[in-house]
């Protein structure tokens, strides 16, 4: 089993990175740190995707010498998919940060528990 894990060490690293991001997301009450955790999870997904496209001993798919033999290059497709993912994660991060700014302007804190308590109080007041 250890042998197999060592052979697949890059996907294992991606899993570990994903776990780091996931625990950051869960254990921190600060909204900014939660967003950082989500970004680490994004990075883990990219690492996993790019590792799927790697073929040992081959060159990147940039054809400078006119050699179009597919057995000379790594897979170009995961790189394109990761590019898409990066742009989406940038957009999502910006959106989350904007929502965090709005929350901070309303409650003057980034602590999720305090925001929860204040929101609960507000609802009780409405009743």
């Amino acid at each position: 089993m250890l042998q197999s894990l060592w052979e697949n060490r890059v996907p294992v690293a991606a899993v570990v990175l994903f776990a780091v991001g996931f625990t950051t997301l869960l254990l921190h009450r600060n909204l900014l740190k939660k967003i950082i955790g989500l970004n680490i999870m994004d990075t883990a997904a990219y690492l996993f995707l790019t590792s799927l496209g790697y073929i040992a001993g081959r060159k990147p798919p940039i054809i400078t010498d006119g050699n179009t033999d597919p057995s000379a290059y790594v897979n170009p497709l995961p790189a394109g998919l990761v590019l898409t993912g990066i742009v989406v994660s940038v957009s999502v991060t910006a959106l989350m940060l904007a929502l965090t700014v709005r929350l901070y302007e309303r409650y003057h804190t980034l602590d999720l528990d305090q925001i929860y308590l204040m929101a609960k109080d507000e609802e009780e007041e409405k009743r």
Binding site: M1, S4, L5, E7, N8, R9, V10, P11, V12, V15, S51, L52, G53, Y54, I55, A56, R58, S71, N75, L77, P78
Partner: peptide, 14 residues
């Protein structure tokens, strides 16, 4: 991950 094909092999499904 244990069930994945070996990393970097040319015969992998992708």
């Amino acid at each position: 991950v244990l069930d994945l094909p070996p990393y970097g092999a040319a015969e992998n499904p992708p």
